[in-house]
């Protein structure tokens, strides 16, 4: 019923209430722009080695300096955004779709289905997440697809459990019974009544998880179990830079590290902003 323009203006009003939300939206927008246009924006070829200009500190030509092979750090930080966001978005989309489907059904149906899916989700959760991801990549092989798969699997239990609880609580609400009295079948109740009502909380989790997924992918690369060099990727760059940092070449670790931290931070803050925007009651 609401015209979309009012939703946009509502979002604008909510976001501007809190400067952290402004910062989060701005940072996420910049990250997305970098992911799309990164290769065009990068001042240098991120893979071109230049042995004449190795380990230059940040300066006028190379704003973020160069690494031990003379590659431009700024360009490498910029093009990394696409890869890291790609991994995060793919992994989180997969875990969101599957997790909400399973969790929503087990919350709605209950019984044996709920019992089994909940136990399996718990089994996944008893492992330290990162160790589980490491094990998966180590077992399946060290490539992009498996990094995405591992990231998706470690995030899956969160969605299963969240969707299960949210749907379970909602199912006992009177308006769900009212929908049944109005002649709605199960499928329609799930799609038209339950899902729209659980979506706000799930979207918050989604945003926070995007941050985690980026961190997870970078961490796998950092310990050599994810994306492999020479690919430009924040985790690898931090790992490479860590060795150089001892020698005083701080820029190799600081810039990709800051980019990574900003990305994780921004997605977490975006979750808070989304909660306020999506809550129909604040309209």
């Amino acid at each position: 019923m609401q015209p979309s323009s009012s939703i946009v203006s509502h979002a604008a009003r909510i976001v501007t209430l809190n400067w952290l939300s402004v910062a989060a939206v701005a940072t996420v927008t910049i990250l997305l722009l970098l992911a799309v246009f990164g290769p065009m924006l990068a001042p240098f070829d991120p893979y071109a080695t230049d042995l004449g200009h190795v380990l230059l500190p940040p300066g006028r030509t190379h704003w973020f300096g160069t690494d031990q092979l003379g590659r431009d750090v700024l360009s490498r930080v910029i093009v990394s955004a696409r890869l890291d966001l790609f991994i995060a978005v793919c992994a989180v989309t997969a875990s969101f779709t599957i997790g909400v489907g399973i969790g929503g059904l087990s919350g709605y149906l209950g019984g044996a289905f709920d019992l089994w899916t909940s136990r399996i989700a718990e089994m996944l959760q008893v492992f330290p997440l990162f160790v589980l991801a490491m094990a998966l990549v180590a077992a399946l092989g060290n490539d992009l697809r498996n990094v995405i798969l591992a990231t998706a699997i470690v995030n899956l239990p969160f969605y299963v459990r969240l969707a299960r609880v949210e749907v379970g609580v909602l199912s006992s609400q009177l308006f769900v019974e009212a929908a049944r009295v109005a002649g709605n079948g199960d499928a329609r109740i799930i799609a038209r009544v339950l899902l729209p009502n659980v979506m706000p909380n799930l979207m918050i989790q989604l945003s926070v998880n995007l941050g985690w997924a980026i961190l997870n992918a970078a961490s796998l690369s950092f310990i050599g179990l994810g994306i492999r060099p020479p690919t430009a990727e924040w985790g690898i760059m931090v790992a490479d830079g860590a060795a150089q940092a001892m020698a005083g070449n701080w820029w190799l670790v600081v810039f990709p590290g800051v980019a990574l931290a900003l990305a994780v931070f921004a997605f977490n803050l975006l979750g808070d902003a989304l909660r306020d925007i999506l809550d129909v009651r604040s309209r």
Partner: peptide, 26 residues
């Protein structure tokens, strides 16, 4: 569940106790 989709569902309706929680907030 099958009654909900039958023609007879129309004939019995209910007004719930709490008007606040019996209306879908969205």
């Amino acid at each position: 569940r099958s009654f909900a989709r039958s023609a007879k569902r129309r004939l019995i309706q209910i007004v719930f106790q709490d008007p606040a929680s019996s209306l879908d907030p969205r």
